[in-house]
Structures are given as structure tokens and as C-alpha cells.
Amino acid sequence: MRALTWQGRESVSVETVPDPSIQEPNDAIVQVTSTAICGSDLHLYKVLGPYLHQGDVLGHETMGTVVEVGPEAGDLQIGDRVVVPFNISCGHCWMCSRGLFAQCETTQVTSQGKGASLFGFTDLYGSVPGGQAEYLRVPQAQFGPVKVPEGAADERFLYLSDVLPTAWQAFMFADVPEDGTVAVFGLGPIGQMTCRIAKLADRRVIGIDDVPERLELAREWGVEVIDDSAVDDVTQAILDLTEGRGADSTVDAVGMESHGSPLTGAAIEVVGHLPDALAKPALDRVGIDQLAALVACIKSVRRGGTVSVAGVYGGELDPMPLMEMFDRGITMRLGQCHVKRWTDDIVKVLEKDEDALGVESLATHHLPLDEAPAAYEMFQEKKDGCIKVVLKP
């Protein structure tokens, strides 16, 4: 089959690789009809390269048609259309029984001290081949795949794999009061959907970014926007919009590669160029992140407010303004998304006749799989108004 493979730092290519096969009784094989590029894929493209191997198949936002099932794949049948959640969970362990699917004890990568296995996401999370390919092996198929209605457009349900549940969790974790304001930092796909979910829940939303196309898209959905390249102090701008108090809740939808931290960015760049034998322990023990967005979230939330972190971080020695956090009594909630915890609620919205969250128009680029390498570069550089790329194998 053809698949998008990692070849080195900022180098990916579409290659012919072996077709996946049933390896465990609860596996299924899905023929991919749509797969998307995620912001987390860009972390692999650059920062987390030391944990990848040449030829690893990337991608974790996938939907398609079931073409083969193992004898213990539950009620999944050949011909079912499914969306595949990005984290692999069993549905019955101690963690899963409590809705903590991202911490599934059946698929936890204990050798790395990490949570549930993820598709297409390095040694740290199980080295499970990803879905930017013609076919995908799906472990724990008795629980994970979400069946979708026949005849529905792929993009009505594709983002159930990651974008929608991650944004839904970001909003839920933010605990925005019914009459409250949430400020969303980063207006990529996760940030855009977090804003729309918050608007659907009738909250006031402020969106922060510096990319004109992202700001304009959020504005079209009724979001008050702040161009952080046009203001001296984003926190002050938010205070000015909230009676000097700050937002009731803030959401970090940016993560480890935030702009505004040049010295930290330089340090990360150096680590990225080290041989893997040196880079891995450096990232694991003394890793640092670019924290401009997270610190701004902390400083922009009101006293007693909540900071929800949806962006991915990987540092072990990140400095945090703990005195300010303690003094102001803020709550912080963060972590990998528990996809299946939110699926039923999201499906109710998606099944409505109107496209209430604009999922069918979120993607700015629809490309064949063979154009994925150029799409990665375009998405990373935010060229050509790129907000979301969907690939068709």
C-alpha cells in the first residue's frame, strides 16, 4: 500500500509499504477514505523526531471502511463505515471504566512511562502505524471505532477522530460559567472548533492568534478576535475586554511550539539536531517547551478562573509562574483527550441537518495522499491560508 512515512527531521515521503494484517483477535483492517494532518503531526515533523524511525507511518485522524475483522472485534462488520479515535483504548480496564480512555491500562506504554497507545505517534506512544495510508490496522476494534451513517459526507464525521473531541474536552475542562467569557489562544483547527463549541453553548468567546486567515475565520463565527501581533500586551487586551478582571476561563490550543520564546526555541532547535542517543535523554529529562501561550493563558484568566490546556507539551523542566498561580487561586486542567468520553454528545450535534459546527467547511485544502509532503510544509509554514488539510488516499 501507499503510506506517508517519516524519513528524517522535516522530511516525509509517500512510499510503498507492506499492507497491514490482523495480528490480534480484536484487530480490524480499515480501508482509509479520508485522513487529516494534525498540529500534533507537526511536532513529529520537527521536535519529536528523535523518537521516530525512518519509515514510520504517520497520521492519527482517520476514517474509512472496514475490510477485515478479527474474531473478537465485537459487533464490527465488514463494510461498516467508521471513524477511528486517535488514542487506542480497550473500554473495560480500570481507567476506561472511569472515562479516562487516554490512560487505558491495556494499551499503556509502560516502558516509556506514558499513557494509552496512539496511532502514528513515536516510540513514546507505542509505535503503532498511523492512518495517513491506504489501509490501517486498528487494535482494540471491539471498542474504538465509531460507526457513522451510510451516505453521510466523510467530513461530517472525520473530525470525531481528534479535532472535535479534543476541542469538546478543552471547552468542558475550561468550566466556563453560563454567563462567562472564555479566551481561546491559538486559532488552528482545535482552537477554531473550541470557539464554535463555546458559541454553541452560548458563551462569550475571545480568540487570539496572529494569522489573518485564522482571525477572519473565527470572526465569521461570532468570535471577538485579538491579533497578538498588533497589540503590545495580549493579557492587557483581554483585561480591557473583561472589566479589568480577566476571562473566566482560558484555553491553550497552541502547545509546545508557541511563538514568543526565542531563547527556548533556540534550545529546542539545538536538541533537535543532536544524534538520537543524545536527543532522547535530553528531551526526556531536561526537555523544555516554548511557553508563551500557556503563560499568557495563566495571566489572562481571572482570579479563581480555570485554564484548560489542549495543546501538547513535552517538557520536563518547564518554569511555571507558581506564585502567581497560587496567589490567584486558578484551576488548571490538561491532558490527552479521552475521545470516547465525548463521542455520544458530539454525534448528537453532527446528526442534526444543519452543520452547526461548520465541520464540512473547516478544511481549506483537500489533496491526494501523494501530495502529503508538500502539505506538511504548507501547514507548518501556514502558507496559502492553510488551516486544515484532508488527504484522500
Results as ranks from 00 to 15, higher is better:
158 L>E: 07
388 K>N: 09
368 P>V: 10
267 A>Y: 13
348 K>N: 10
26 N>H: 15
234 V>D: 03
18 P>F: 05
58 L>N: 02
102 A>Y: 01
211 V>R: 04
157 F>L: 08
74 G>P: 10
79 G>I: 11
188 G>E: 06
175 D>F: 00
5 T>A: 15
379 F>Q: 09
180 G>R: 06
33 T>D: 08
151 G>T: 13
201 A>T: 05
122 T>D: 08
133 A>K: 07
86 F>G: 06
174 A>Y: 01
374 A>I: 00
16 T>N: 14
117 S>M: 14
180 G>Q: 07
129 P>N: 11
62 T>N: 07
307 V>P: 02
390 V>R: 07
393 P>M: 09
351 E>C: 11
282 A>M: 15
212 P>T: 10
121 F>N: 10
328 R>D: 12
376 Y>S: 02
302 R>G: 02
33 T>E: 12
259 H>N: 12
108 Q>F: 00
140 Q>A: 14
7 Q>W: 08
221 W>S: 14
274 L>G: 08
24 E>N: 14
340 K>I: 00
207 G>W: 00
319 P>K: 08
336 Q>W: 03
233 D>F: 09
5 T>I: 05
348 K>D: 13
64 G>V: 06
381 E>L: 12
3 A>N: 05
240 D>H: 08
288 I>S: 12
349 V>Y: 10
356 A>H: 13
294 L>Y: 11
11 S>V: 12
88 I>G: 03
271 V>E: 09
361 S>G: 06
19 D>I: 00
83 V>M: 06
294 L>V: 11
269 E>Q: 15
338 H>M: 02
353 D>T: 14
87 N>K: 01
45 Y>L: 08
225 V>G: 01
149 P>Y: 10
384 D>K: 15
88 I>N: 03
242 T>N: 02
27 D>M: 09
286 V>M: 14
219 R>L: 06
141 A>V: 03
206 I>Q: 01
350 L>H: 02
391 L>Q: 08
227 D>Q: 08
87 N>P: 00
56 D>N: 14
146 V>T: 14
48 L>I: 07
